[in-house]
Design a protein around this nucleic acid. Structure first.
Length: 482
RNA sequence: GGGGCGGUAGCUCAGCCGGUUAGAGCAUCGGACUCAUAAUCCGUGGGUCGUGGGUUCAAGUCCCACCCGCCCUACCA
C-alpha cells in the first residue's frame, strides 16, 4: 500500500491539524506493515508556494532560509510523534521532482492551451477571484492581473471522473465527501489555469517547459509530488504495480485531489490513486487554529507536556470522521487518563500484579481463548475509520476488566487463578499487538510487561496526567526482587 | 446565490437499505469489590432525536420549506 499525506506549504510551523493527518497515515502504514504487506508511507512539504515567499518577505529573511527552517520543523515531527514515514519529499529540493513535473506537463500537452486571462488574484489563496475582497479574508489586497496563462482541459474529464468515483473505482471516503465530489462533478467542470507569470511568482516555482515566462501552478506542482517522489524503480513499484494508493487529505483540498489530480493522470493515461481519504478540521479551544493558539495547537509542545501516547491517542480516538473536532488540553488529559491510565495501564498493572502475587510470576497458558479484536480493528481501518478502530482496542480493555471482576482470581484456588490469569495475560498480549499501529512505543511497553514466561510487577505504563505529580513517590522500589 | 455535510441525553458522539419501550462513553447519583495507577465492576436518573409541514400501517431514519454551524464554490442585478 502506498500512503501519502498532503504536503503542506511551509510558511509557518506545523500545528495539530498537520499532526492529525500524519498520525492517521502512520496508523495505516503500521497496520498494513505488521500484516506483512509492503508499505510505502510518504509525506513532505510544498516549498514552491508563493505564500512561502510572502512569509519570508514579511520576516525579512531569504525564502530559502525560511523554507528550510520550517520544512525541518515538519520533518522533525517524526521523532516526537513516532512517525514511520519512509520518505519525506520537499518539492524544492527533491532531485526528481522538477523533472517529474516537467514530464507530466509534457505528457499532458495535448490538453494544454494558452488563453489570455484577466482577473483579481489573491496571493493568500493562490487563485483568482472575479471581485474583491478575498472571501477568506486575507489581508493582502487582490492584485489586478492581465496575462496569458496555460489552461488545462479539465472539462474533458468530467464524465470519466463521474464514472470512476461514482462506481467506486476511485474511492472517496467518507461517503459524505464522495457525495460532495459527485455533486461538484455533475455541476460541470471548467478548464483550469495551470500556470502563473514568473514575475508575479517572484521567480519562485518550476518554469513551464518551453515558456520560461510562466511557472507551473503551485497545485499542479504539488500534486505531482505523489509520483515525482518515487525515483528509480519506485515509480513502477509503487504507482504502476501497487493497486492500493491512498491519499490522506483535509476537507479543504478535496477538489484538488479527487478532481484535478485524477484528471492530470487521466490525460497522459497514468494509473490513478485508489482512495482519497478526507478528514475534517481541528479547532483549538473552540477556535480556528492559528498562530495565536499557542501551545494548545503545537504538536511538539503537547508531546513535551503530555507525552506522545496521549497526543496520538486523542487524535485517533476522539476525532470523528465527519465534523470538526475541538481540541482542548482538558479533553486530551481526560481521554488519556480514562483509556490509557485507568483502562489499559491499570489492566496490565493488575494482571501482572496478580500473576506475581498468586502465581509467583509464572505465566500460565490461557484458560480459554482470549478475546481478540484484530478483525474489528482491521475492518475499521479498511474503512479508514480511525476512531472506530481505536474504540475496538478500548473495548477489549473493558472486556478484560469485566473478566477480572467476573472471575475474581483473588478468590480462586490455584487452578482457577491459572485459568483466569492465563487468559488475561494472553489478552494483554493481544492488546499489545493491536495497539501497535496506534501507540507504537506504548505497545512495546505493554508487550514487555506481559511478555516472557515470568512476569514482574511493572511500573505504571501510563501515569495519570491529571493528578498533580504522584503523591509521595515511592522511595525507590529497587530493594530487591520480590 | 449554488452545492455538500452536520444540528440525537449536561458533554463527546453511535444509530446501514424507515419498524418492537431511541443507544454508548464521560459527567451526576447509589451500590460492590479490593488484584490494580484513589484504579475497576454493577445499577439509577436524564432526550420535544434543530423548527414546521408532508408521505406511510409505521420516521431520528424518506420528501419539502425554514433556522443555526462548518466546508467548497459562485456573485445574476
Amino acid at each position: 500500500m502506498y500512503i501519502t499525506t498532503t504536503i503542506p506549504y511551509v510558511n509557518a510551523r506545523p500545528h495539530l491539524g498537520h499532526a492529525l493527518e500524519l498520525v492517521q497515515a502512520d496508523v495505516l502504514a503500521r497496520h498494513h506493515r505488521r500484516r506483512g504487506e509492503p508499505v510505502r508511507f510518504q509525506t513532505g512539504t510544498d516549498d514552491n508556494s508563493l505564500k512561502n515567499v510572502l512569509a519570508a518577505e514579511a520576516e525579512g529573511v531569504p525564502v530559502r532560509e525560511l523554507v528550510d527552517r520550517n520544512a525541518a520543523a515538519f520533518e522533525g515531527l517524526r521523532g516526537p510523534l513516532d512517525l514511520s514515514f519512509d520518505s519525506f519529499i520537499r518539492t524544492s529540493a527533491h532531485p526528481g521532482h522538477r523533472p517529474g513535473v516537467e514530464r507530466i506537463w509534457q505528457a499532458t500537452a495535448h490538453d494544454l492551451y494558452t488563453r489570455h486571462y484577466e482577473g483579481l488574484y489573491c496571493v493568500g489563496c493562490e487563485q483568482f477571484y472575479p471581485q474583491g475582497p478575498c472571501p477568506d479574508g486575507h489581508e493582502a489586497p487582490l492584485q489586478p492581473v492581465s496575462e496569458v496563462n496555460w489552461f488545462f482541459r479539465l472539462s474533458r474529464y468530467r464524465d470519466a471522473l463521474l464514472d470512476l468515483i461514482g462506481g467506486g473505482r476511485l474511492r472517496v471516503e467518507p461517503a459524505a465527501r464522495r457525495n460532495e465530489v459527485l455533486a461538484f462533478l455533475r455541476a460541470g467542470l471548467d478548464d483550469i489555469s495551470v500556470s502563473r507569470s514568473a514575475a508575479r511568482a517572484r521567480g519562485w516555482g518550476i518554469p513551464v517547459p518551453g515558456d520560461p515566462g510562466q511557472v507551473v501552478y503551485v497545485w499542479w506542482d504539488a500534486l505531482a509530488n505523489y509520483v515525482t517522489a518515487l525515483g528509480g524503480g519506485d515509480y513502477e513499484r509503487w504507482w504502476e504495480r501497487e493497486p492500493r494508493k491512498v491519499h490522506l487529505v483535509g476537507k479543504g483540498v478535496i477538489r484538488f485531489h479527487a478532481v484535478y489530480w485524477p484528471a492530470m493522470l487521466l490525460s497522459p493515461g497514468l494509473p490513478l490513486p485508489s482512495a482519497i481519504v478526507v478528514h475534517d478540521y481541528l479547532t483549538a479551544n473552540g477556535r480556528k487554529i492559528s498562530k495565536s493558539s499557542g501551545n494548545a495547537a503545537d504538536p511538539v509542545a503537547l508531546v513535551d507536556a503530555y507525552g506522545v501516547d496521549a497526543v496520538r491517542w486523542w487524535l485517533l480516538r476522539e476525532v470523528p470522521r465527519v465534523g470538526d473536532a475541538d481540541f482542548t488540553e482538558a479533553r486530551l488529559v481526560t481521554r488519556a487518563d480514562e483509556d490509557l491510565a485507568g483502562g489499559l495501564g491499570n489492566l496490565v498493572s493488575r494482571v501482572a500484579a496478580m500473576v506475581c502475587r498468586f502465581l509467583d510470576g509464572h505465566v500460565p497458558p490461557p484458560g480459554e481463548p482470549p478475546a481478540d479484536v484484530a478483525e474489528a480493528v482491521h475492518e475499521a481501518l479498511a474503512d479508514f475509520d480511525f476512531r472506530r478502530a481505536a474504540g475496538a482496542v478500548r473495548r477489549l480493555v473493558d472486556e478484560a476488566n469485566k473478566y477480572v471482576e467476573l472471575t475474581r482470581p483473588w478468590q480462586q484456588d490455584t487452578a482457577g487463578r491459572e485459568r483466569s490469569l492465563g487468559t488475561l495475560v494472553h489478552t494483554c498480549r493481544a492488546l499489545a499487538v493491536q495497539l501497535e499501529p496506534f501507540l507504537p512505543t506504548a505497545a512495546a511497553r505493554v508487550a514487555a510487561a506481559v511478555g516472557g514466561t515470568r512476569l514482574s510487577r511493572p511500573e505504571p505504563l501510563f501515569p495519570r496526567l491529571s493528578t498533580p505529580a504522584v503523591s509521595g513517590r515511592r522511595p525507590g522500589g529497587s530493594a530487591g526482587p520480590g
